[in-house]
Every structure is written in structure tokens, then in C-alpha cells.
Design a protein around this nucleic acid. Structure first.
Lengths: 208, 208
DNA sequence: AATTACATACCCAATTTAGGGTATATCAAA
DNA sequence: TTTGATATACCCTAAATTGGGTATGTAATT
């Protein structure tokens, strides 16, 4: 049987080597290419065909999401498995929406990664048990990403960048009163009561 | 020849397995124990003797620094190699000051880790090339980690956790006036002018 | 046509933070 | 022993933020 060709993307070589060995411990896979950045990976994929892409989500420069989008444009048949450290529901949802075939957390066991490989090879999708559980816990409190209006989200971002109400007002060509109103509404909606509390909320909910 | 006994601590099993295989690719080492938390590692080390500890620095609960301190109390002869993602000079310095034998970044190659093992086994210390370079670049702008006093750093952390001055005062059993004074001094020293600006500074300078 | 959501803008009051001081006790270093 | 750094605590004022309202124009939806 032909061994499936895998390309691996991880910006931490030490971890990449470990994962490569892990994958190749199964005879049916061969890691034919490794890249430490999304950009390099895309260059390689422009010239070679692979069966499966195993990519770290946290990458320097272009992030995992952008990489996935580009790859799907280039090689429509390729299976994508994302390996991520983030167990933040909003991040997970975002990645899955992008249509990846497998999602495995770095804190899962190595069996998870191997299971993911076997499942996606057979055309199925795979979520590790950890990931499934996280998603189920957050089904109900979903749509909270739409809690804030676009304008409010914009203002949250400016607050996070350390602009005062006055500066935000000038930047957006609106009155300082309006910024204050948005700010109040934002704090009320998010259940926070200070700029720093809001920042924590925003990070946890993927607004930033 | 007796194989050296290694204990591995990493909270991400998938990565731990990869590193274990990597270490055992050299015949002279055997990974006799693995733990996913500092606490578990300490329990194991209370009952067994190891030659070398390879520990991830980012751990849930007790952090790498505290783990190192505890281990040095328990097993004075053990060699310690820290494996970390952080290439922030201030973090690196802090860890090295604690007297570890080797420091390797996850973005180094796997050869670095193996070199580290061999060097510390022979009683020498090891810093990966990447780490050496980072430290050299920051020799001059050093001491900026000492810009803030310990007390001030403590307060920065509490501000980052969204405590108000009043709450910080209660927590530390000091007057709210004192917290205000610290806060003013911190803003002056860091050249910032708001809590959020301070937070950005703190993140950039490894205070958090 | 009525309702709803959104962005806009104002009023008021209370609280918190920022920025300017000064002052004291302690401890280490020169 | 004097100096310097640190942690403590207070004074003052000004600015910014928070928390409670109301109100209006616009666009989309029912």
C-alpha cells in the first residue's frame, strides 16, 4: 500500500520533530515535508501534492486560520488536521467553521492525533474528546459573539489599544458622549465593570 | 553502562510523548516517569530518584519556577533542563538565576535538547544558541526588569487581574493611599498613563 | 404602519484614577 | 554615618470612568 504523504507545520522544531516521529510510528504515513511557518508551507504546497496537512494553529506571521483558507484554495483534496493549544470555545468554533477535518489539542494524548489521522484518511472528521466536551458545554451560551454590535466591538478594540474616550471620539468622528454611551452599554452587556475587566472578557470571547 | 534516568514534566501529553521518544532515541537515556503537572512530578520525585529532570516551563497551577525551587530542595544532585516557549529575556534570566542546568526553547531544533542532555550529564551547563543570542542582545538594556520593585510588580499583577485600588489595599493589608502611591510610581517609571497602557507595557516586558 | 435594533448625543451624580506634592520608618550600601 | 532605595501613608486637584436616565434619526423587519 502507498504510504500517505503528510506535510507538517509547526514553528517549534523541537515539537515538530516529536510529532513527526509520532506520525511515522504508524507505517502508513510518511512526513514528506516540514515547515516552520505558514508562508514556507504554502510555497512547498505550491509545488508538491500531499494527502494530509497537520498544522499548528499558533504560528508567527500568517496565522493558522489564514493558512487553512489558502490551503483549501490550492489543494482541494487535502485533509487538514489542526493541532492547537487553545481550548477556548470561540477559537475552536472559528477553526471548525473554516472546514478543517480534524481538531486536536496539544493537551490531548498522542492517541488522539493518531486517531485523527486514521479518521480523516477514511474521509471522516475528527474532534478529540476534550474538544467535543468543550463544544458541548458552550452550545447554549453560543451566539454571544453577536452580543456586541459592530460599532461596540470597534470601540472595545480601541479601548484595548489604550485610547481614552476623548481619543476614540476624535478617531471615529463622534461625540465623547456617544463613546461614553457605547462604553456603558458594553460594560452592561458583558457584565464587567472596568476597562480591564472588559479586556479580560474580550480575550476570553475572541473579540480581540 | 547504566542508562540515565529521566523524569519528564509537560502538561501537553501529545508533546510529552514526542519529547520522550526523542530522548530515548539516544540509548543512554530512559524516561522513567512522566507527569502533566508540577504537583504530580513532585509526588513522584518524593519516592524515586532521577538523574535528570526535563520540565516544560508553562504549567498549570504551580509554575516552572516554583517547581524548580521545590525540586532543588528535594533532590540536590538532580540536573534540571527547562524547556520553554518563552523567548522573553526577562523570563529567561529569571529561570537561569534559579540555577537550572540547561535552557532550551521549543523553537530550537531537537539537537539542542539532545546536546543539553549530554552536556548536563557531564556536569556542564547548556544554553541553546537561540537563548545565548537573546541574552547577549539584552545585556545592555538589562536591569530594566528591576525597574519595578517587588512590591510594585506585585501590584501590577493585581491591577492586571482587575482589582481596584481599594481591593488591592484590602488584599495586601495596606492603605488605599499606599496603593495609589505605588500606582503613581509605577505609571511614572513605565512611562504609561493608564491601567491599560500599563498592562501593555507589562506584557511586553515580561512582568506578567 | 408599527416595532425593533442601532448609532448617535445629551443630562446628572458618584466613583476611580491620574498627577502633583510631602513625610516617615526601615534596611542596605557606600 | 550619611546616603539611597523601598514601602508605607497622607494632602490636594483634575481628569477619566462608571452608572443611572432620556431622546432622536435611520434602517431594517414585521
Amino acid at each position: 500500500m502507498e504510504r500517505k504523504s503528510v506535510i507538517l507545520v509547526d514553528d517549534h522544531p523541537i515539537l515538530a520533530t516529536g510529532i513527526k516521529n509520532m506520525i511515522e510510528s504508524l507505517d502508513q504515513y510518511k512526513v514528506d515535508a516540514s515547515a516552520t511557518s505558514a508562508e514556507t508551507a504554502l510555497e512547498i504546497m505550491a509545488k508538491n501534492i500531499f494527502d494530509i496537512l497537520v498544522a499548528d494553529y499558533e504560528l508567527p506571521g500568517m496565522n493558522g486560520l489564514e493558512l487553512i483558507r489558502e490551503v483549501k484554495k490550492m489543494q482541494t483534496g487535502i485533509k487538514i488536521i489542526v493541532l492547537s493549544m487553545h481550548d477556548d470555545p470561540s477559537v475552536i468554533k472559528e477553526i471548525i467553521k473554516e472546514g478543517v477535518d480534524g481538531y486536536v489539542l496539544k493537551k490531548d494524548t498522542h492517541h488522539s492525533l493518531l486517531s485523527a489521522l486514521e479518521r480523516v484518511e477514511r474521509g471522516k472528521r475528527y474532534l478529540s474528546d476534550e474538544v467535543s466536551e468543550i463544544l458541548m458545554q458552550n452550545m447554549d451560551e453560543s451566539e454571544e459573539s453577536q452580543l456586541l454590535t459592530p460599532r461596540e466591538t470597534e470601540i472595545v478594540k480601541l479601548i484595548a489599544e489604550d485610547y481614552s474616550n476623548k481619543e476614540i471620539a476624535e478617531k471615529l468622528f463622534i461625540s465623547e458622549r456617544t463613546v461614553e454611551t457605547h462604553r456603558k452599554n458594553i460594560l452592561r452587556k458583558t457584565g464587567t465593570s472596568s476597562a480591564i475587566g472588559l479586556l479580560k472578557w474580550a480575550r476570553e470571547h475572541g473579540v480581540l
